[in-house]
């Protein structure tokens, strides 16, 4: 009799432990799923040129909406680090995820879509699995404008920009055409996976050579203003401004990373333009 009771007791304890373990496991996996989702959303945002605090904010909101009280996110343009747990007081189920980000570009459409997604997710419009599906959809989307469209609009932008700083009509036309060619080449080089330094160096060289060509063809065309129109499309003004904004807001690491990125781009453009201009100066002596 006693043995039977003992056996039953053992059985129930075993069952309870098993259930508890199962529950804990389920809890851990659901936490992990949320963390993976948050990291994925953050990765898409950083890769497409979002600001640091917006990414951190998105991670916080996604995790907190799923009942995770303890969220620590460290976002830089080169990597994301997130730790989560159920509560602030006991941190026994701490999970940490580290994601390295290799290359970045500016695609504001994706930033906007992930932002919209996080807003929908937070008000429980979708489950974690559906959210993952939606994020994959966003990630797979191609650029909204193709390279040719981009090139044409870049030409228009540079042409109208130099009209703003006082260009005449022939300069407008030459900046338009040279920037279209330059942006097209730049887009193809970036697509092939060349580094920032090499692509912007090439861009600067093309802009300078086409400007020199235009200035020899027509006496009214000033070389400098056409080059300015060309490099305005590549100039890392956004990186400089975002870097300074991050620094002012206290995200010092992101600020420095963006600042260095801007410096590399600026130096490579200057290198390309300067190289061609120097050669032209030397060549003029012989002509």
């Amino acid at each position: 009799m006693e043995e039977k009771a003992l056996k039953e007791l053992r059985e129930t304890i075993r069952k309870e432990v098993k259930e508890a373990m199962h529950e804990e496991h389920a809890l851990a996996t659901s936490q992990k799923d949320v963390l993976i989702l948050a990291i994925y959303a953050a990765e898409i945002m950083v890769r497409n040129g979002s600001e640091t605090y917006r990414v951190e904010d998105t991670i916080m909101r996604i995790c907190k909406s799923e009942g995770l009280d303890f969220v620590e996110a460290l976002v830089t343009p080169t990597g994301i680090l997130v730790s989560i747990d159920q509560s602030h007081s006991s941190q026994h189920h701490m999970l940490t995820f580290n994601k390295r980000i290799q290359n970045r570009l500016i695609n504001l459409e994706k930033v906007s879509e992930v932002n919209d997604f996080s807003r929908r997710f937070v008000v429980k419009e979708m489950s974690v699995e559906e959210g993952m599906e939606r994020l994959r959809e966003i990630d797979k989307k191609s650029l909204p404008y193709r390279i040719t469209t981009q090139a044409i609009f870049a030409g228009i932008a540079s042409g109208f920009f130099i009209l703003l700083v006082g260009a005449n009509f022939p300069e407008f036309i030459s900046a338009l055409l040279s920037t279209i060619i330059m942006t097209f080449v730049l887009g193809i080089l970036l697509k092939r996976g060349f580094s920032y330094f090499f692509t912007h160096l090439t861009g600067g060289m093309i802009a300078a050579s086409l400007a020199i060509l235009a200035s020899t063809l027509h006496p009214d065309i000033r070389m400098n203003i056409v080059i300015i129109g060309g490099i305005m499309v590549m100039v890392p003004g956004v990186a400089i401004t975002n870097g300074l904004r991050d620094t002012i807001a206290g995200d010092l690491m992101s600020g420095i990373i963006r600042g260095v990125e801007a410096l590399v781009i600026a130096v490579s453009i200057a290198f390309g333009v300067g190289f061609v201009l120097n050669i032209w100066n030397v060549a003029q002596r012989f002509l």
Partner: peptide, 16 residues
């Protein structure tokens, strides 16, 4: 001019 130029830059940054 500034309006048109800004739209051109917006396309470069892949604005929706």
């Amino acid at each position: 001019y500034a309006y048109i130029a800004t739209i051109g830059f917006a396309v470069l940054f892949q604005v929706p």
